[in-house]
Amino acid sequence: KCPLCELMFPPNYDQSKFEEHVESHW
């Protein structure tokens, strides 16, 4: 789950994509 927007991600979600998403909040 994204700590900034509460959006849920699947357990096998690509880590780099997840980090990209988190950085999109900044």
Score class of each variant (00 low, 15 high):
Lys17Glu: 03
Glu19Pro: 03
Phe9Val: 11
Glu19His: 10
Cys2Leu: 03
Leu7Lys: 06
Glu23Thr: 11
Gln15Glu: 07
Phe9Lys: 04
Glu20Leu: 08
Tyr13Glu: 08
Asp14Val: 11
Met8Arg: 12
Met8Ser: 09
Pro3Asp: 07
Tyr13Gly: 12
Phe9Arg: 04
Leu7Ile: 13
Asp14Gln: 09
Trp26Ile: 12
Asp14Ile: 08
Phe9Glu: 05
Ser24Ile: 06
Val22Leu: 05
Asp14His: 09
Glu19Gly: 05
Glu19Phe: 07
Pro10Leu: 03
Asp14Met: 10
Lys17Gly: 13
Leu4Val: 12
His25Tyr: 01
Pro11Arg: 06
Val22Met: 12
Lys1Ile: 05
Pro3Met: 14
Phe9Asp: 12
Tyr13Trp: 04
Glu23His: 12
Pro11Glu: 10
Asn12Ile: 06
Phe18Glu: 11
His25Arg: 02
Phe18Ile: 12
Phe18His: 08
Pro3Asn: 08
Glu20Asp: 15
Glu6Met: 06
Leu4Ala: 15
Glu19Leu: 07
Ser24Thr: 07
Leu7Pro: 03
Glu23Ala: 11
Cys5Lys: 02
Tyr13Ile: 15
His25Thr: 03
Leu7Ala: 11
Leu7Asp: 04
Glu19Asp: 14
Phe9His: 10
Phe18Ser: 12
His21Ile: 00
Pro3Ile: 13
Asp14Asn: 13
Tyr13Val: 10
Glu23Asp: 13
Cys2Lys: 00
Glu23Gln: 12
Lys1Glu: 05
Gln15Cys: 12
Asp14Trp: 05
Asp14Glu: 08
Asp14Arg: 03
His25Asn: 01
Cys2Asn: 08
Trp26Gly: 15
Glu20Thr: 10
Met8Thr: 13
Trp26Cys: 15
Phe9Cys: 04
Ser24Pro: 03
Cys2Val: 03
Asp14Ser: 12
Lys1Trp: 02
His25Pro: 01
Lys1Asn: 13
Phe18Gly: 04
Pro3His: 15
Pro10Met: 01
His21Glu: 00
Ser16Val: 11
Glu6Ser: 07
Phe18Met: 14
Gln15Asn: 13
Val22His: 02
Leu7Thr: 14
Leu4Asn: 15
His21Thr: 00
Asn12His: 06
Glu23Gly: 05
Pro11Ile: 10
Glu6Asn: 01
His21Arg: 00
Lys1Arg: 07
Lys1Cys: 09
Lys17Arg: 11
Glu23Cys: 04
Glu6Lys: 02
His25Met: 00
Cys5Ala: 03
Pro3Lys: 08
Asn12Glu: 07
Gln15Met: 14
Tyr13Pro: 08
Ser16Pro: 12
Met8Trp: 12
Lys1Ser: 11
His21Pro: 01
Phe18Thr: 10
Val22Thr: 09
Lys17Cys: 02
His25Trp: 00
Glu19Met: 02
Pro11Gln: 07
Glu23Pro: 02
Glu20Gln: 13
Met8His: 05
Glu20Ser: 07
Gln15Ala: 13
Glu20Trp: 04
Asp14Cys: 05
Pro11Ala: 12
Lys17Ile: 13
Pro10Gln: 09
Phe9Thr: 09
Cys2His: 02
Pro10Cys: 05
Lys17Asn: 05
Asn12Thr: 07
Glu6Pro: 07
Ser24Met: 07
His25Val: 00
Glu20Lys: 11
Asp14Ala: 08
Cys5Tyr: 01
His25Ser: 01
Glu20Ala: 11
Lys1Met: 07
Lys17Met: 08
Leu7Glu: 10
Lys1His: 07
Trp26Gln: 15
Glu19Ser: 13
Lys1Gly: 09
His21Met: 00
Cys2Asp: 09
Gln15Phe: 10
His25Gln: 01
Pro11Val: 05
Met8Glu: 14
Ser16His: 12
Ser16Gly: 10
Glu19Cys: 03
Pro11Asp: 13
Asp14Phe: 01
